[in-house]
């Protein structure tokens, strides 16, 4: 268990990448201003969100696919009270990583 804990903390050293870091990537690559770089990152996310919210899957070759799935209604249960509640049909989004990404991450 102690070993696992150490492994986890080493893994966490890489930290979390955010929009700001992605904007830095754009800034370094194209030399756009910080503000424009941030806008470009935002526009990419906007177009991805937009397609998905219109019911369209998004496939980025070499990276992966964001796939929409429609779930039927089912009976759920409040885990605290045990009361059964119907869960309405809904659309969910899943990500399927490309083989290239899987290979890089499997290590």
């Amino acid at each position: 268990m102690a070993d696992a804990g150490i492994a986890v903390s080493q893994k966490e050293e890489a930290g979390t990448l955010t929009r700001a870091d992605l904007a830095d990537v754009v800034h370094a690559k194209l030399g756009l201003s910080r503000a424009e770089s941030a806008t470009l990152v935002e526009r990419i996310l906007f177009h991805m969100c937009h397609s998905l919210s219109e019911g369209e899957n998004v496939k980025i070759s070499g990276f992966g696919s964001f796939i929409l799935r429609d779930k039927g209604e089912r009976i759920g249960r409040n885990p605290k009270t045990g009361v059964e509640v119907p869960i309405a049909p809904r659309r969910v989004m899943t990500f399927r990583a490309s083989q290239i990404m899987r290979d890089k991450i499997a290590g």
Binding site: Q10, K11, E12, E13, A14, G15, T16, L17, T18, R19, D21, L22, V25, L45, F63, I100, M101, K104, I105, G107
Partner: peptide, 15 residues
């Protein structure tokens, strides 16, 4: 850069 971050064991959070 997202893939590389994950390969290094990190996370990527896009609010």
């Amino acid at each position: 850069s997202i893939t590389d971050q994950l390969a290094e064991g990190g996370r990527v959070e896009l609010r």
